[in-house]
Design a protein around this nucleic acid. Structure first.
Lengths: 321, 321
DNA sequence: GAGCTACATCGTAAATGGTTACCGTCAAAT
DNA sequence: ATTTGACGGTAACCATTTACGATGTAGCTC
């Protein structure tokens, strides 16, 4: 038994000849190692748990691909759980993942509440947050700086001469895509000495349709904005179509910018100018960080902020006087 | 130990009072059942393996969501593996999934070759094919009828008076999205007495850019088609933009139809007319089928074909004479 | 009231399929 | 002959499930 274990695990203390015999027997018998028994004995499962809001959302799908690629590279498998940003579902899957003895946990979700922290604390294995953070900053995380990304987006509008800038925001309850991006918008206005006007911001739900709706509202205003900052590409594309459906043009009549850079941003007319968030890398870096933690390597900076980048395409123009 | 096992597993043979005591001890000790040990003893892991071509592809992401929802409903977890339709990677992940003692396997991939079959045959647990089939028909599967879907698409073009119908196809090596859809196109032409013309079909790679390219080619023809059938929505959208970039209009100058009905199809102008394939349901039904197989329930028809549906939107018009 | 049966409840121990510490053996080198 | 290192085998261990047996109690019969 021990010898078989050694050859299967590539332990060098086996004579080449007997190693060969073992391999032959493995082949002949169709033996397949049982990872569950192995996991029980070794206390390692080479699988990590991934809790994700919604795999059918292209942003998270892209992140997930980054996660899986790196996991695969280090010979881990991933157990994927959709939790729809619902707290009690998140807590539930964290617990079942921990029961399954995952070697590590990668968490993407909505707000990280006190209850999340409590669940995390029962874990004997490392946890890293991806595309979220706990405000206390006690857990390793990989994210972008949403506020600055939003600031940069609004700022490129300002640099193009716009001063009547509306925003299609997400819910302010959401700390990352919602509040932080909204706050970046406000700060950019402030830095440029532009007064914040409440009726120039509408709250959407990140999706296309809500972008369409929000834009309809702006189109109905007596004093219309000249540019729109949308918190997500999807809402921005909704806004573009809303404008086009009225016979108006982007960017001639309205400039549009957003943040995300989903694939679709370069599959619309006009091509969408947006602040790119490196989705694949968010996943890849988070997973890489987790592998280090699982190997108990010490990591210099466990809270990484990935850079964003403004991608100038065709939906932003200089304002027409 | 046995009693604890009984209360944890809801076995009725425990006095309510001792059940209570056990729960208290569990609470007090922070005991969490070890699913690995449980799996070893019970020979069940309540996890299923899912091999998928690419989770960042929105079609598969949508299918995966269907899979996970139903899995979750039946208290299974899923291990997700991207295999990029590459045979040796597919075989490899099948084997590691089987080593991990998954209770069932859900396979989505490219062609199901003889080697796949051999790998499948070493499995002690049920396997269902999703969005693929083995031509022998020996394994349970859930799919749509790609050929008829394509036939229907081309036929709605024909019913709108078109007779010069080009196709942007996928590779003919791919049995489902490629060959079957191409074959449906040919059959529809044939049924309408339209001669098949080789220079009216271009091979793409399913992606947006290849749709753009293919359309450029058609635009350069002396005798241009009046309508285009694209094998996928993405290529169709590429074609639309290719047309619009030349200052031409859809559907006035060209009618466009495709098959898939990805979310993006209703996020472009004009809204894309397409034959919808029920992606979420493909995953959900496949997983439901797998749960039945895992429970050793007998299933009436293990090879299910889900219906497709032509969704008339705005990219198809009657031909201009 | 004694004895018996049936049943509910609970504990014991084997089994699950590996890993690994430890020890023994053997051959080669000193 | 002794030491050393390579190699291989034994058995404990991992945390459960589960078959089986033990125990106790209630109800019944006579």
């Amino acid at each position: 038994m021990a010898t078989v274990s050694r050859v299967v695990n590539n332990n060098p203390n086996v004579k080449p000849q007997t190693r060969k015999k073992v391999f032959e027997a493995i082949e002949r018998l169709g033996y397949r190692p049982n990872a569950v028994a192995r996991g029980l004995a070794s206390k390692k499962t080479t699988t990590v748990g991934v809790v994700i809001p919604d795999i059918s959302n292209s942003i998270f799908a892209e992140i997930a691909r980054g996660i899986e690629d790196i996991a695969n590279m280090y010979h881990y498998n991933i157990i994927l759980c959709n939790a729809d940003k619902r707290k009690e579902k998140e807590i539930r899957v964290i617990n079942t993942l921990l029961e399954k003895q995952v070697d590590g946990l990668l968490f993407m979700g909505g707000t990280v509440t006190e209850e999340h922290i409590q669940a995390f604390q029962t874990s004997a294995v490392p946890i890293v947050l991806c595309a979220t953070r706990d405000e206390k900053g006690t857990y390793p995380s990989v994210d972008i700086d949403h506020e600055t990304a939003a600031f940069d987006a609004v700022n490129t509008l300002i640099r193009h001469g716009h001063r009547e800038i509306a925003m299609i925001s997400g819910t302010l309850q959401d700390p990352a895509n919602g509040y932080a991006r909204f706050h970046g918008y406000k700060k950019a206005l402030e830095a440029a000495g532009i007064e914040y006007q409440e009726d120039l911001v509408r709250i959407g739900n990140y999706r296309y349709e809500s972008g369409v709706e929000a834009m309809k509202y702006f189109l109905g205003l007596k004093k219309k904005p000249t540019a729109i900052f949308a918190a997500t590409d999807e809402m921005a594309i909704g806004a573009i179509h809303s404008i086009q459906d009225e016979g108006l043009k982007v960017p001639d009549d309205f400039s549009i910018i957003s943040v995300d850079n989903i694939r679709m941003a370069s599959m619309v007319r006009p091509l969408l100018t947006t602040v790119a968030q490196p989705m694949y890398d968010l996943g890849a870096v988070a997973m890489r960080l987790l592998t280090k933690l699982m190997k108990k390597e010490t990591v210099e900076n466990p809270r990484v902020i990935l850079p964003h980048e403004t991608i100038l395409r065709l939906s932003v123009n200089h304002v027409n006087k």
